[in-house]
């Protein structure tokens, strides 16, 4: 079964960008969310295998959304998406429990490497 992804980003351009990268590789984009509040709601509804999470978003930022989702499901696999220059936010998100991160502008090969390694790491009992 195709891996189901929830894409969270406030910029439609970035969501589209990621969506195309995922679809081209046979992933299923289960849903999209444009802020942290929506992300938590959609996570509950869709139970995706993987979430890509932007950090700086309106209403609720990606770090808080990461904490909220992990509180619901400690096994959630969350890849932080960050623009360059937010290293401290990325490190904060990783310490909050995010699995890994990717940096905008996205390079497909980089996104896929990170996602595939994260999926593999998750399958191994930690």
């Amino acid at each position: 079964m195709a891996t189901r992804v929830l894409i969270v980003d406030d910029a439609p351009f970035m969501r589209q960008n990621l969506k195309e990268i995922f679809v081209a590789q046979g992933f299923e984009v289960a849903g999209e969310a444009s802020n942290g509040v929506e992300a938590v709601e959609k996570y509950k509804d869709l139970k995706p295998d993987l979430i890509t999470m932007d950090i700086v978003m309106p209403y609720k930022n990606g770090i808080q959304a990461t904490r909220d989702i992990l509180a619901l499901d400690s096994g959630a696999l969350i890849i932080i998406c960050s623009a360059l220059g937010h290293e401290s936010l990325v490190t904060e998100a990783i310490e909050a429990g995010a699995t890994d991160f990717i940096v905008k502008p996205f390079r497909p090969e980089n996104v896929l490497q990170v996602v595939k390694k994260s999926l593999l790491a998750r399958r191994q009992p930690g």
């Binding site: 960050s82 360059l84 990325v90 490190t91 990783i94 310490e95 991160f101 940096v103």
Partner: peptide, 10 residues
């Protein structure tokens, strides 16, 4: 890698 510190933290 654009965020080596974060990478090491992972």
């Amino acid at each position: 890698c654009s965020l080596p510190g974060a990478r090491a933290l992972v």
